[in-house]
């Protein structure tokens, strides 16, 4: 039942700026929720509203980026809170992979647990990709996890970086911890039968 992730194909969204924190990704007032479902609508809500009031358009409101599944960011993306709401909100908006100069560690781990790969590129490459997207928003890209490249059609735009062990987790489907844990059902039962306190009335 493990879900392998080796390629993400789709159009992209450029989101410029360093240190974009989890509170900006999903404002704190949306943390008091019962399910993650609605979070996709509120992603970047305050930033989007602010852009609007200034008469400009936030990338997440831009009609041409709306279907984007690959998010391209800059430095230290996702810093701030350890809650899973930020990656959940992005995923539920439709983001399937994130390319950036660097990611906050906990955010990176939370994305991994949701099956959203975060891949690193250099500063120049990040700017280059963002410009390419702005020039032609409808362009389809491929994030290839098996050879760690970003492609446009068959052409390689640039290499992507990801730790070998993390790459392996996406390719083998073992990023899905629940799936792995479930595979050990019989071992779980064995431990349970051995634990003294489970056998007392």
């Amino acid at each position: 039942m493990l879900m392998k992730i080796d390629k993400i194909i789709g159009s992209a969204i450029p989101l410029k700026g360093n240190d974009i924190d989890t509170d900006r990704i999903i404002p704190a007032r949306f943390l008091k929720c019962v399910v993650f479902d609605g979070l996709g609508h509120h992603v970047f809500e305050d930033d989007r509203r602010e852009e609007k009031s200034r008469g400009s358009v936030h990338p997440f409101d831009h009609p041409e980026y709306k279907k984007g599944t690959i998010l391209v960011v800059n430095n230290n993306f996702g810093c701030g809170s350890s809650r899973e709401h930020a990656p959940q909100a992005l995923k539920r908006f439709g983001i399937k992979a994130i390319i950036g100069e660097s990611f906050a560690e906990i955010f990176f781990g939370n994305c991994l647990a949701l099956g959203v790969p975060c891949l690193r590129v250099g500063e120049k490459e990040a700017a280059l990709i963002q410009t390419m997207i702005e020039e032609k928003p409808s362009e389809q890209y491929t994030v290839d996890i098996s050879d760690l490249t970003l492609k446009k059609g068959k052409d390689v735009i640039c290499p992507l970086f990801m730790q070998g062990t993390v790459q392996e987790q996406f390719l083998s489907g073992t990023w899905d911890v629940t799936g792995i844990l479930l595979e050990n059902q019989s071992l779980i039962k064995q431990v349970a039968s051995r634990l003294p306190y489970l056998n007392w009335a």
Binding site: S82, R83, E84, N110, A113, L114, V177, T178, I180, L181, L182, N184, Q185, I188, A192
Partner: peptide, 16 residues
């Protein structure tokens, strides 16, 4: 533990 670990414990009574 965090939310996805709660899910794991519900589903498998184990966690990583």
């Amino acid at each position: 533990i965090g939310t996805s670990q709660i899910r794991d414990v519900l589903a498998t009574q184990t966690l990583s």
